[in-house]
Design a protein around this nucleic acid. Structure first.
Ligand code: ZN
Ligand code: ZN
Ligand code: ZN
Ligand code: ZN
Lengths: 142, 142
DNA sequence: TTCTCGGGTGTAATATTATAACGTCGCAGT
DNA sequence: ACTGCGACGTTATAATATTACACCCGAGAA
C-alpha cells in the first residue's frame, strides 16, 4: 500500500464539492493532483502534455475547463503574470490569495486575509484583487 | 495651432530618456502616445492595427519592442490579468504601481508608494510586485 | 419504461498573445 | 574606410486560450 492515501488537497476538494453540489470528476481530480504535485506554477499546456499518454483525449479545452472549475472553487490560483497555475495551499476554499513567487526555485508561498490596499481611490469598490510578489525566497538567498 | 502641443506624458518621456541616455524614437513615441490616448488598457495587437496604415511596417515585434522599452522606463504599465497596457499616469518614472481597474468603464486609476504586503514570508525578498484590483469605480456605481 | 433535459466531455478549428532568428541600416568612434 | 552597436524590418513560429458543435450519460418527469 505505498500510495493508497489521498492527499489532503484532494480530500478538501471532495469535501468542498460535496458542500456545493459540484462534481469532482476524474479529469478535474487529475488536474488538481497534477497542479498540486508540481513543485511550482504549472502551465496549462504542460498539464496537457502530462495528461495525454492516451492518444485520443486531452485537447486544450479539456484542461482549461478543469482549471476554470478549480479556479472557481478556489482550489487552484492563477499566477497572472506567468500565465500559470498553482494549487491552493490552504485546506479550505480561499478567495483571493497573495502570492510570493521565488524567481530562483519557483516555489510559491501563499498568504491571505491580506489587507492589501491602503489608498483605494474614492468610491472604488474592489471585487477581485491580483497580488503577486516576485523575488527570492528564504532558501535562495546567496 | 489646434494640436501643436506635446502632452505632459510625452514631455516627461523626453526628459526621462534624456536623463538616461535612451532614445525616444518615432516608433516608441507613437506607441506611448497611443497608449496614453486610449481611455483604458490597450492590447498589443490593437496598437498594431492602429499603427499600420502603412502596408510595409508594424509587425508584432515592432510593438512589443516599443512596449518593452516603455515598460522598462516605467512610462507604461502592463495589466497582467488582462494582457494589456496602460500609460503611467504619473509624470515621473514610477516603479511598480497599484492599479484599480473598473470592470464597467475600463478606466484605470493608479497609486504608488503602496505598502502592499503585511505578511511577507520569512526571508522573502520582494523584487517586483503585481497589484491589480478589479471592481467598480466611483462613476460607475449604480 | 421511455422521454427529455442538462452537465460534462470529445474534437476540430481558430483566435489571441508573444518570441525567435536573422538581416539591414545608419550612426558614433576609431 | 572600418567596426561595432542599437534600432528596426521581416518571416516564421511558439505559447496561450477560446469558440462551436456533437456526443454521451444519468437524473428525474411522463
Ligand atoms: Zn489559496
Ligand atoms: Zn527560492
Ligand atoms: Zn505609473
Ligand atoms: Zn467605471
Amino acid at each position: 500500500m505505498s500510495r493508497e492515501t489521498t492527499s489532503p488537497a484532494l480530500q478538501a476538494a471532495e469535501k468542498l464539492c460535496d458542500e456545493r453540489g459540484e462534481r469532482l470528476t476524474p479529469i478535474r481530480r487529475r488536474v488538481l493532483e497534477l497542479v498540486h504535485e508540481a513543485d511550482g506554477p504549472v502551465k496549462a499546456y504542460d498539464l496537457l502534455e502530462t495528461l495525454k499518454p492516451g492518444p485520443g483525449s486531452a485537447k486544450p479545452p479539456t484542461v482549461y475547463r478543469a482549471l476554470e472549475f478549480l479556479l472557481g472553487l478556489g482550489l487552484v490560483h492563477k499566477v497572472e503574470a506567468l500565465n500559470a497555475y498553482v494549487g491552493c495551499s490552504h485546506s479550505h476554499s480561499c478567495g483571493g490569495a497573495e502570492l510570493f513567487i521565488c524567481s530562483d526555485c519557483g516555489s510559491v508561498q501563499e498568504c491571505h486575509g491580506a489587507p492589501v490596499s491602503t489608498q483605494t481611490p474614492d468610491g472604488f469598490i474592489i471585487e477581485r484583487s491580483v497580488v503577486e510578489h516576485f523575488g527570492h525566497c528564504g532558501n535562495c538567498r546567496t
